[in-house]
């Protein structure tokens, strides 16, 4: 009878299994990457979220700002063809951005008109190739347009900062993918709401995959 009572006491208080050192280390590494990687990606996640919502609902402001005009000089290089000359002028004027070929217009032998675009601004440049004089009409985009343009941005020509932004975006993509999986692992390891969470995850997983199969 006494042995049975002792057994009941032991069974009522199950002992926590001792975690092997390797498992604990894996958990710590996963948690550290999940936490600090997540903090590194905070602004990108917010930009991603807002821009993605805008794809469906178009709520971010897109109106352009009033144009400003300015004049600047550049070092003329008459031996360059149109494509090389416009890139040269862009770099001389300290501008960054793409130069769409379709909007490059040779006005006459000495004058060329082209656009330089980046997510924040559009420049209409009229350049005198012999004198080295450029008239620029600068139009700023709204912050809403900028947020959408930064979604999946792969860099901007002539800008090292924007190339770094492109790598940052890819880094965040990999980190979020890791965090999605590590988050599930950490939740399982924590042992909270395990049953309800497993049911939710299993149902969501099955429905999501079935839906993906249906839509493809």
């Amino acid at each position: 009878m006494r042995d049975k009572q002792i057994l009941n006491i032991i069974m009522a208080y199950p002992t926590k299994p001792v975690q092997p050192a390797v498992k604990k280390r894996v958990r710590t590494i996963a948690y550290t990457i999940h936490l600090y990687g997540g903090l590194l990606c905070v602004p990108y996640l917010i930009i991603f979220g807002l821009s993605s919502l805008d794809f469906n609902h178009h709520f971010l402001p897109k109106a352009k700002q009033p144009a400003t005009n300015w004049v600047a000089s550049f070092t003329p290089k008459p031996e360059l063809d149109d494509t090389a000359a416009t890139a040269w002028i862009r770099d001389n004027l300290d501008l960054i951005g793409w130069i769409p070929r379709a909007q490059l217009r040779r006005i006459d032998a000495a004058n060329v008109q082209f656009k330089v675009l980046h997510p924040g601004k559009t420049y209409l440049v009229r350049a005198q190739l012999t004198d080295g004089r450029a008239e620029v009409e600068e139009v700023g985009n709204s912050w809403g347009y900028l947020v959408v343009a930064l979604h999946g941005n792969r860099g901007v020509p002539a800008s090292k900062l924007m190339n770094f932004w492109a790598y940052y975006g890819q880094f965040c993509a990999l980190l979020v993918t890791f965090s999605a999986v590590s988050g599930v692992y950490l939740w399982l390891e924590a042992g909270r709401d395990r049953f309800s969470g497993t049911v939710i995850m299993a149902v969501a997983l099955a429905l999501s995959l079935a839906f993906l199969w249906w839509i493809i």
Binding site: G152, V176, T177, A180, V181, V184, G197, M201, L212
Partner: peptide, 18 residues
């Protein structure tokens, strides 16, 4: 946690395809 569990597949879809 729950947002992550429910939307894990969708997060993976968009970040992997992206």
């Amino acid at each position: 946690s729950i947002a992550g569990l429910v939307l894990m597949v969708w997060v993976l879809i968009y970040f992997v395809t992206g």
